[in-house]
Structure formats: structure tokens, C-alpha cells
Nucleic acid binder design. Structure first.
Lengths: 225, 225
DNA sequence: GTGCAATGTTACCATATTGTTATTTATGTT
DNA sequence: AACATAAATAACAATATGGTAACATTGCAC
């Protein structure tokens, strides 16, 4: 994921903080969105789906802890990384913050270098947590949800077709021999007729596109980008 | 619960304190009730049933500690959150206060920001005791009370159905394999017949809505928003 | 170009998998 | 004990998937 595609929601009631932190993050190439209180933060989080939220603890309307709790309870937002901004020495707010589901702390006064490197570390963690899906050109295969999308369009495939596509797409360009396909998709104990693979390839060609699957006569099939 | 519905009973014999603290809390949107001594405090607590009581320790008529003890002994009041107001350095009153059943301390001199965020934290604790819920679209799952609500309508589910729904709804879109469901909902030592999961899914489809549960043949089920 | 093995295509059907309902068994409550 | 509720099972129905057969087409070897 490119830095340009990373959105950070920055929430603080003090315009000075928004400006200095926002400046440093923008400078690093991130997209920065701001909010001035918890209510606004939750609203913008839902709308923008940022990867990271930096939340001030003390704010009018709704404080950071409350906002954090609301976000953690929302199934669509709950995996967003959240860091609190807190004045040094406010011990109790740290405890309450971790209870509420914070991932990290940034203490004021803010040192730009520290801020940026913490943000990087947090985003790295987010990336690792990202879901188990793989991208091949404009094809995205999502094993968790057993569905694929092609140029943004979702397509639901039956199991065998899904497995076959997964296999071929796992190494674009590589020719998979019929034996190999049978072994990996059907399991080598199972005996199926000679046309079975072809029929499945046919169905995939219908759904994904004819030119994505190349036949290598006498050998097998390959997926091409 | 809306802030407007939250009542805070503020008890102190010094009108200055009542005024400054009361002002800050009202400003945050809370309903503030006041009392000037312990006797009056107990009386008003019974009548108004506030969510939070802020009690000065040193007062004429009946001090805060005694009032606290009386409140804790009353079955209708005993779950109210109580915070003591105490001058910094009055160590002994803190010990006595916790013995009497205090939930937290606020030290004088009072800093409005600290006050407000402590109050919020205390009320949050109260709220959390009341409910621990999770939101997925217009479905709210309340683990503590073992009930859910759909578009505001409450639905009570039997345990297994509740657990199954909780599991599926914890990651909307993700396909849970039958094994995984058995493991997480039934416990993998238990052996149940082949149609058990289906029957429970059926019941959920009846109660929650058919289209919320998608079958992925040969794999499992998923919850969709 | 001809022959031939390999692959493509289509329609159809068997079957594994899931859906449904009724009934039995378990669990807890008054 | 009687009752209510929940959970599991059994027995049968419905269904998508996966496989097959039968035939068409391709493309390589000669």
C-alpha cells in the first residue's frame, strides 16, 4: 500500500496541535483528516475509514476515550489502529485508555521525529494485521470470505472453481500440470474423469475472462495477467 | 444513554464549590442536583436516583463517609457510583473513604478539565457495568444480557443461537467453516449430529432475517450486513 | 492436408451438502 | 412432579455443485 493511500484521522480540540501534527504527517506523504471533538471523530471515521486515528484524550463534547470505545464497538471500524494523545503525567488517562482499546500513546509535548516514527510503527502493525487476500492485477482473491473480485466487481465462485483459480493465480505464468492440479485441488486419492478439469477451466473462463487462462497442450494450464 | 438523562448529585457545604463544580457539569450537559449535607444527600439520592454522587468528605450534620455507608447499605442505591471530594493531603480520609465504598477521588483544588474527565470515566464504568455491546449495522449484540436488538427491537435468543450469531457477526463477511463453528460454539470435544448447525442457522434466519446468513456450500456460513 | 491425441463444449444427471420439520432428549423452573 | 424451554436428532425434501458422457474442435506430427 502506498503512503498516499493511507488516511490518518487526527482529532484534537486545539487548532495548534492539529496544525503541527497535521503538517508533519502530510509532509511524510500521508493523507490527513481532522476533527475537533469525539462526535465529529466518530462521524469522520465512519465516512473515511482511516487506517489510523490519533485521538486527544481531553476534549469537549465527547472525550477521546469515549470515542475510542464507540469505534471499537463498531464492527466496521474496530480494527482501526488508535493512538492517544495525552499530556505527560496523566497516568489515569493511560489506564482508562488501554481499557478502552488504545493501541499506543503519544505524549505531549509532541516531538515531530518521535511522532512520525511511532506512526510508521503503528501502520506497520496494521499492515501485518491486514486480511488474508491476494491481488493479481485486477483480480483480488479473498480466502477468508471465499469470494473474489475482478475490477471491483464481486464474483462468487463455487468451491472447486475457487480452489482451482486460487491455485493457478498463486503463480501467474507458471504452467500447472494436470497431475499437479488434480493433486492440489481434488486430492490425489480421488479419481475423476478426464474432462473434469477442462470443464472447470471452462467455467472460470466464462466468469473471469477467456484470455486469463492459457492452455499448454500436452502439459497443463497457466494463469496470465 | 443520553447525557441529558444522566443525573449527578453534588454534595458540599460550601456554596462556592457547588457553584463551580455544578457549572462545569451542567456545561457538559449533565443534570445536576445539589445537597448541602449528608442527611439531605441521602434523602435526594433516594428521591432522584442519580447515576453518580460527588460527596464532600467534611460536612456538618453528616459527613460524606457516613452518607456513603448509608447509601451502600440501601439496596436500591448501592450501585450508584460515588466519588469523594477531598483536600489534597488528607490521606486518612481516602482510606476511610475506600472502606466506606467510594469509587474514586477528586482532590481539591478542583481543576475543571480533570473533574470533567474523571466524571466521564466514572460514568463510563457505570455504563460498562450495565452493558457491553457490539454494533454491526442495525444489529446490536449485548453479551452481558444475552440479548440482541435489531433495528431497535429487542430479541432474546437462546444461548447456542446467541453464541452462533455472535461468532458469525464478529467478522461480517468472513466464512466460518463448519469445523470452526463447532469448535468455537460447541467446543471441539463435543460430538453433535450433522444437522445441528443447520438447524440453529435456520432459527437465526427466522429471527434475524434470511438474507443475513449466506451459505457457502462445502465450506460454511457467513454473516452479511 | 490428414490423422490423431488432446482439449473444448454442452447438456444432463447423480450425489453430497444443506434445508426443513417433527420429535425426542436434556436442562432448568416452579 | 409437572412444566417450560432449549438443544439435539432423525427423517425426509430441496438444491447447487461437481462430474460425466457424448460430441465438437483444435493443433501438432507426419
Amino acid at each position: 500500500m502506498n503512503k498516499k493511500d493511507i488516511k490518518i484521522l487526527l482529532v484534537d480540540d486545539e487548532p495548534d496541535i492539529l496544525e503541527i501534527v497535521g503538517y508533519n504527517l502530510s509532509n511524510e506523504g500521508y493523507q490527513v483528516i481532522t476533527a475537533e471533538n469525539g462526535v465529529e471523530a466518530v462521524k469522520k471515521a465512519k465516512k473515511e475509514l482511516p487506517q489510523l486515528i490519533i485521538l486527544d484524550v481531553m476534549m469537549p463534547e465527547m472525550d477521546g476515550i469515549e470515542a475510542c470505545e464507540i469505534i471499537r464497538k463498531n464492527s466496521k471500524l474496530k480494527d482501526i489502529v488508535i493512538a492517544f494523545l495525552t499530556a505527560r503525567g496523566e497516568d489515569y488517562s493511560q489506564v482508562a485508555g488501554f481499557d478502552a482499546g488504545a493501541d499506543d500513546y503519544i505524549t505531549k509535548p509532541i516531538k515531530p521525529k518521535v511522532l512520525v516514527s511511532k506512526v510508521k510503527a503503528l501502520l506497520r502493525r496494521f499492515k501485518d494485521d491486514a486480511k488474508d487476500s491476494m491481488k493479481i492485477g485486477d483480480l483480488v482473491i479473498n480466502r477468508d470470505e471465499y469470494k473474489i473480485s475482478l475490477k471491483g466487481k464481486e464474483i462468487i465462485l463455487p468451491r472447486k472453481e475457487f480452489e482451482l483459480l486460487s491455485l493457478l493465480a498463486s503463480k501467474p505464468g507458471k504452467v500447472f500440470k494436470r497431475d499437479e492440479i488434480l493433486d492440489k485441488v481434488w486430492g490425489n486419492e480421488v479419481v475423476v474423469g478426464g474432462r473434469t478439469i477442462d470443464v472447470h477451466i471452462r467455467k472460470l473462463r466464462e466468469k473471469i475472462g477467456d484470455k486469463s487462462f492459457k492452455t499448454v497442450k500436452g502439459v497443463g494450464y497457466k494463469f496470465v495477467d
